[in-house]
């Protein structure tokens, strides 16, 4: 592993390493990323090994411009609009892939996330390489977001270190959010991960009764059901005491056809209904994010489970760790004027 200051780096040097199937860590406008040639199967195997995440988890790729993107994905109108508005910049647009990247890069459903980083070095490297490179954060899965080199190196094994060919050190990056990930392959674009770029997709609906709240939960389930079995779906519920988080979960259970009685999991911390069809967690009694970790949250995500978490704001960091992998819907409930009324809103923030 070779660590070099960014000012001493020549574009050709990076390109040569990538061409020979090497792994390079470089800064972007968001985090440090780990890059390999996305069309080289051997290089992709390397990044999978480095990230230590199972085969089948897709990787976004970085391209130089929209023209290059069109060689690898099919851009629909929604996608084109997003490219025009946000790229280059901290947005990853998921489109239907053309299967021209190495196996393991596209998702199981053949979609591919594309990003055009707003970063001079990265863009020059892609231009010279003339191929897309994987654009994944440089941390190993489930580790700290990498804003400086030590964030990465302190949290990986020697085996992982041995896979890195070059580290481009640009010091500590401003703590920007990772890119916003938007899936355009569905009728409505859906935000898989919220970064600094925010779409105006926030809706707020007035629920006039518990029944209303349950129905809203049912509608939300129907909206996201298409991900069932493909990704974990997390309903992160936020709202004050007595606002109806358990009621919402009851509605969700109804929509999913859960037969077990749904009750408040405050005391037990977790209830699993119908042998794990729906996991119901309550973070009210949790004092740190690690308590959600202890409940096997990672396993639930990789099992592509459906999880409802009450008081999700108490364990926001742990939940956010998975926003690349899981569909996370933040549902906010607040009291309205009348006794039985509540405002419900949802989105990927």
């Amino acid at each position: 592993m070779n660590i070099k200051k960014i000012k001493n780096i020549k574009v050709e040097e990076v390109v040569d390493i990538l061409k020979s199937g090497g792994l390079v860590i470089m800064p972007t406008e968001t985090l440090y990323g780990a890059f390999v040639d996305a069309t080289n199967p051997r290089a992709v195997q390397k990044i999978i090994k480095y990230k230590n995440r199972p085969f089948g988890k897709p990787y976004s790729v970085a391209v130089e411009n929209k023209k290059m993107a069109e060689n690898y994905v099919e851009l629909n109108e929604t996608a084109k609009k997003l490219y025009r508005t946000f790229l280059p910049g901290p947005v990853t647009v998921v489109s239907k892939g053309l299967h021209k990247v190495a196996p393991g890069v596209e998702s199981e459903n053949g979609t591919l996330g594309i990003r055009i980083p707003n970063h001079k070095l990265v863009l020059s490297v892609i231009n010279s390489l003339d191929k897309p490179i994987t654009a994944t954060s440089a941390n190993a899965s489930y580790q700290k977001r990498p804003y400086k080199i030590s964030d990465i190196l302190d949290n990986i094994s020697n085996t992982q270190k041995s896979l890195i060919d070059l580290v481009v050190d640009a010091g500590e990056l401003p703590n920007n959010e990772p890119s916003t990930v938007i899936d355009t392959t569905l009728d409505d674009p859906i935000i898989l991960r919220q970064g600094d770029v925010k779409l105006k997709n926030k809706v707020e609906i007035l629920s006039k009764s518990e029944e209303n709240t349950k129905n809203i939960a049912k509608e939300l389930w129907q909206k996201y059901e298409k991900y069932h079995g493909k990704r974990a779906i997390v309903f992160a519920l936020v709202g004050p005491m007595g606002s109806g988080k358990t009621i919402f979960t009851k509605g969700l259970g109804l929509a999913m056809g859960v037969k077990d009685d749904i009750v408040s999991p405050t005391y037990n911390l977790e209830e699993d209904y119908d042998e794990g069809k729906l996991h119901h967690i309550d973070a009210w009694r949790m004092s740190s994010d690690s308590e959600l970790t202890d409940l096997g949250f990672a396993q639930k995500i990789s099992n592509k489970n459906v999880v409802a978490i009450e008081w999700a704001d108490r364990v926001i960091n742990e939940i956010r760790t998975y926003d690349e992998e899981a569909v996370i819907i933040w549902v906010k409930i607040r009291y309205a004027k009348r006794q039985n009324e509540r405002w419900l809103s949802w989105g990927a923030t």
């Binding site: 911390l269 009210w284 009694r285 949790m286 004092s287 740190s288 690690s290 308590e291 202890d294 409940l295």
Partner: peptide, 8 residues
């Protein structure tokens, strides 16, 4: 003073 119980 009434700290939440910790799962740890």
């Amino acid at each position: 003073g009434g700290v939440y119980p910790s799962l740890a």
